[in-house]
């Protein structure tokens, strides 16, 4: 009894250490975002005075709100395109027999490993020439380089897990091919597609290099890039508080996703890589 009790408390300590490791920097940026300018530099781990001032500040200027809209819009559109194209390709990979299948998987892995900086200089020139520099399209296109391979890879891992025998069973049960797809296969594939969408969205949301390289105004600049250009809500204020507040705002949706769908996200992250 006491031995198991000791083991439990050992595990409790370990668990707390791990959780502290994960949350420390997050908590720190949250703490900063709630400090008023006078206590911002006190280095206190918990704000002595809590204030919403920084949040009010960033939402008052279009600099941040515009960037937020850009971030959401660009990430959503990229996700939709990547998941739609990825679903088609992954279905083919998981279900159909055709030559070139392993080539496709190999190619998407290769492209996922592509160093983005290698694409920045040519894309910078190409986009200026064809006039999509500093537009949503100008960011959505390079986002395909990582979102599409990620989608194909994750989705084909998910699709391979679907018991396709059920399609046969449904046919014997009297379903037309369309019914078999709608009533049996689609409900089983949906969670995988949804998880993939979340992963792709997180990747697009996270991008920084393309966002600072291929934009020059607030027309398409996403939040991570915009933060780096923050000057503070007023001319004299240090941008620290604003940056912290903006950082918290773009972190919250990710944390919510992670909390709600952690099981599926873990499955999505690891399924392809391990079973490869």
């Amino acid at each position: 009894m006491s031995a198991t009790g000791r083991r439990r408390s050992q595990w409790a300590v370990i668990n707390i250490l791990v959780i502290a490791y994960a949350l420390f920097p997050v908590w720190w940026i949250i703490a900063l975002s709630f400090k008023d300018p006078s206590t911002l530099t006190d280095g206190n781990f918990i704000p002595t005075e809590w204030t919403w001032e920084n949040y009010r500040g960033i939402f008052q200027t279009s600099e941040f709100t515009r960037a937020l809209i850009n971030s959401i819009g660009i990430a959503l559109i990229s996700t939709v395109i990547a998941v739609v194209l990825g679903t088609m390709a992954a279905y083919a990979v998981a279900r159909l027999r055709f030559p070139g299948k392993s080539l496709l998987i190999g190619m998407s892995l290769l492209i996922a490993m592509f160093p983005p900086i290698s694409l920045v200089s040519p894309l910078f020139n190409i986009e200026r020439i064809i006039g999509i520099f500093d537009t949503w399209t100008g960011l959505i296109i390079p986002y395909m380089t990582f979102s599409l391979p990620l989608a194909i890879y994750t989705l084909s891992a998910f699709f391979r897990e679907i018991p396709w025998d059920l399609e046969k069973a449904a046919k014997v049960d009297g379903a037309t091919p369309a019914q078999a797809f709608r009533l049996v296969i689609a409900p089983l594939a949906a969670p995988g597609v949804f998880t993939t969408a979340i992963l792709v969205f997180i990747f697009c949301w996270n991008d920084f290099l393309f966002a600072i390289s291929l934009t020059s105004t607030s027309a398409a600049r996403t939040v991570p890039a915009a933060i780096a250009f923050f000057t503070g809500s007023s001319q004299f204020a240090q941008p620290t508080g604003s940056i912290a507040a903006a950082a918290v705002v773009i972190t919250i949706p990710i944390i919510v996703f992670v909390l709600l769908f952690q099981r599926r996200i873990v499955a999505g992250l690891t399924s392809g890589a391990v079973k490869g």
Partner: peptide
């Protein structure tokens, strides 16, 4: 098509629809 042959089949893997309850599985056809 299987649909028009009016036969029922029991599969080795059972091929139960995992997203449906037992009731819905049995009533699917």
């Amino acid at each position: 098509t299987p649909r028009d042959r009016d036969i029922a089949m029991v599969f080795q893997s059972y091929a139960l629809y995992p997203h449906m309850s037992v009731r819905d599985n049995m009533g699917f056809a």
